[in-house]
């Protein structure tokens, strides 16, 4: 390994533990999916019912550890940017290897999926006959390959970072130049981005007012990419107060009062519950309305946070960037 930073070692160690537990959970899930029979009174069915508890405990453990660990992961990337020549924030470190960007996407996807698994599990446990047991273990078997991929990417990424190779800074990665990955979005006219963002938010508000969980989930799902694109293309420039600084990672640094952490947390909270509420209603869970409310609050907080910067900039300076 080229990089012997204690933070990376800690993350890799936890990855190993989580992966080991996920393997146990996978083995039991396969058994349950194959042999589960609600009405049987065999010792096997009896043992499986007990093992189902173990799998649930393991997955909850993984999810609740992954939440803070993800924040810590981002923090570590930020820290590594001090060592890597050229990197000034986590963006450079993420792009230090080809695995960085996929790793990020898979990590976020995994958070949503594990969260949804716990939603299904909670609802299942509230029903007297555990109707979704087989389905939820199928679901876990589908998540597992993604989780394995995440672990592999984690190892490959940290292993592949070479502290002697110069990496790009976010200034070039997120620029309007043709070569950057997101130039297509940055060069979009501001009005289009704003219409997209606030229009999407308006649709969420409408779905909430009419209590339509399906549309709530749909628009929340859409809200994730729309928010990130609008953050990169428009809102981030106001946070930095620089028209050419588009970066979703520098927000997480102390220079900007770590504002990125509450932003991304509220966005995750809002969109996750928006999607979960629909799943809950589909599975016949009565209090999904409360989840829609949570989603709504999370989305509002996010929109308020990102809108604050351009508005306060305009009030202070009297011009738009």
């Amino acid at each position: 390994m080229n990089l012997l930073s204690p933070d990376v070692i800690a993350i890799l160690m936890l990855d190993a533990i989580l992966f080991l537990f996920a393997l146990i959970a996978l083995a039991i899930s396969v058994q349950i999916v194959r042999k589960w029979d609600r009405s049987a009174t065999t010792p096997l069915q009896y043992a499986l019912e007990k093992r189902a508890y173990l799998v649930a405990t393991i997955i909850e453990y993984i999810f609740y550890l992954k939440l803070p660990l993800f924040l810590y992961f981002i923090y570590t990337l930020d820290l590594l940017s001090n060592i890597l020549p050229g990197a000034m924030c986590a963006a450079g470190v993420t792009n230090a290897t080809v695995y960085g960007m996929p790793l990020f996407v898979v990590k976020i996807l995994d958070l949503y999926l594990f969260g949804l698994w716990i939603v299904v599990h909670r609802i299942d446990m509230n029903k007297p006959d555990y109707p979704f047991t087989k389905r939820k273990f199928w679901f876990f078997m589908l998540i597992f390959p993604l989780f394995a991929l995440e672990t592999a990417l984690d190892v490959a990424h940290f292993n592949g970072i070479n502290p002697h190779v110069i990496v790009s800074c976010c200034g070039t990665l997120f620029s309007a130049a043709k070569t950057s990955a997101v130039s297509a979005f940055i060069t979009l006219p501001t009005s289009a981005i704003l219409v997209l963002f606030y229009g999407n938010f308006f649709l969420i508000v409408v779905s909430w007012v009419f209590k339509r969980s399906f549309f709530m989930a749909l628009f929340n799902l859409l809200f994730v990419p729309v928010s990130i694109i609008s953050l990169v293309a428009f809102f981030s420039t106001y946070v930095y107060e620089m028209p050419h600084h588009h970066c979703p990672f520098c927000l997480l640094q102390s220079d900007y009062h770590y504002i990125g952490y509450p932003m991304y947390m509220t966005l995750f909270f809002g969109t996750f519950f928006g999607i979960a509420a629909w799943v809950a209603q589909k599975l016949g869970f009565d209090s999904y309305g409360r989840w829609m409310l949570r989603s709504f609050i999370g989305d509002i907080l996010y929109v308020a946070l990102v809108s604050y910067y351009p508005i306060s900039f305009y009030l202070k300076n009297g011009v738009w960037l």
Partner: peptide, 13 residues
């Protein structure tokens, strides 16, 4: 992260 999750993991099973 280097200590607490490990302890909890050890008590799971």
């Amino acid at each position: 992260f280097a200590t607490v999750p490990v302890y909890i993991a050890a008590t799971l099973i």
